[in-house]
C-alpha cells in the first residue's frame, strides 16, 4: 500500500501549478525515500525534476515501489478542489489502476475523495551527471520572475551573463533592448532578499523566455531561486520546497547557428 499525507495541501497545489505549464503527463515514482518525478516537455528542451522526501510528509507509507503515470491537467483539477488549509492524503494499492486524493478540512467536518485513473506512460529518463557549475546565483525568486516577465516583452530569448560584479539579464528585439543588472548584496540580515553569486568563471548563455516564464510559476514555493550555469550546458533553476524537497528545471541553451 502507498499512503502519503501532507497537512499543508497548499504545498502540493503549488507544486502542480509549478509543473502544469510544461508537462501534460508524468510518472510519479514512489519509494521508501519519497516521491520523485523526472519528465521533459514535449519538445525535449526542458526537464522538470521533482523530489519530495518521505520524511517531509506528515505520514508516509510505501510498501513497494510504484510508478504511477498521471495526467497533470487532471491532477491539477483535483488539487484545485482542495482548500489551502485542507490536509491531503494520496492513497493507492499495490499494482494500482487508480490513485485516490483525500482532502480533510481542519476540523474534519468535510472529507472529499477524488479517484483518478492512472495511465501507462513510456518512460524516458535522462541521466544527469553531478556537475560543478561555473556560476551559482541565489536571488529573490520574485525578482527573477519579474525580470523574466519584463524582458520577454522585448524578445523571445534572454541572455544571462554572470561575472564577479553580479548577474546581468538582457533581451533584444524589434522594439529595442532591455538590460537588468543585479549586483551582489552586501551581508544582509534578510537572506530572502539577498543576491549571492558564487563564480569560478564568468558565463554568458542565452535561453528561451517562454520556458523561463514557465519555470517562474514555482515562485510561490520559495522566496529564493538558485540558478546554476556553465558554458554550453543546460541551466538549472532550483526552488526549495519547504523542508520536504525541491523542484529543479533544466533548460537547454540557444546557440548561434
Amino acid at each position: 500500500m502507498f499512503e502519503a499525507r501532507l497537512v499543508q495541501s497548499v504545498i502540493l497545489k503549488k507544486v502542480l501549478e509549478a509543473i502544469k505549464d510544461l508537462l501534460t503527463e508524468a510518472t510519479f515514482e514512489c519509494s521508501d525515500c519519497g516521491i520523485q518525478l523526472q519528465a521533459m516537455d514535449n519538445a525535449h528542451v526542458s526537464l522538470v525534476s521533482l523530489n519530495l522526501r518521505s520524511d517531509g510528509f506528515d505520514k508516509y507509507r510505501c510498501d513497494r515501489n510504484l510508478s504511477m503515470g498521471m495526467s497533470v491537467p487532471c491532477m491539477s483539477k483535483i488539487l484545485r478542489c482542495a482548500s489551502s488549509e485542507d490536509t491531503v492524503t494520496l492513497r493507492a494499492w499495490d499494482n494500482p489502476d487508480t490513485i485516490v486524493f483525500v482532502f480533510e478540512s481542519p476540523n474534519r467536518d468535510k472529507i472529499s475523495e477524488y479517484e483518478m485513473k492512472l495511465i501507462n506512460l513510456d518512460q524516458e529518463h535522462l541521466g544527469i551527471p553531478e556537475t560543478l557549475y561555473s556560476c551559482v546565483v541565489k536571488m529573490p525568486s520574485q525578482e527573477f520572475a519579474r525580470i523574466c516577465r519584463d524582458l520577454s516583452q522585448f524578445g523571445d530569448a534572454m541572455t544571462i551573463a554572470c561575472s564577479k560584479e553580479g548577474i546581468k539579464f538582457s533581451a533584444a528585439g524589434d522594439y529595442g533592448t532591455a538590460n537588468v543588472k543585479l549586483a551582489q548584496t552586501a551581508e544582509t540580515e534578510n537572506q530572502e532578499e539577498a543576491v549571492v553569486v558564487e563564480m569560478k568563471e564568468p558565463v554568458k548563455l542565452t535561453f528561451s523566455c517562454r520556458y523561463l516564464n514557465s519555470f517562474v510559476k514555482a515562485t510561490p514555493l520559495c522566496a529564493q531561486v538558485q540558478l546554476s550555469m556553465s558554458a554550453e550546458v543546460p541551466l538549472v533553476c532550483e526552488y526549495q520546497i519547504g523542508e520536504i524537497g525541491h523542484i529543479r528545471y533544466y533548460l537547454a541553451p540557444k546557440i548561434d547557428d
Binding site: 535522462l126 542565452t206 537547454a252 548561434d256 547557428d257
Partner: peptide, 14 residues
C-alpha cells in the same frame, strides 16, 4: 540565427 538545442544533446536518455 539562433538555434534551440534539445536536452538530448547533453544528457544520455535511457
Amino acid at each position: 540565427e539562433v538555434a534551440q538545442l534539445r536536452l538530448s544533446s547533453y544528457y544520455i536518455m535511457s
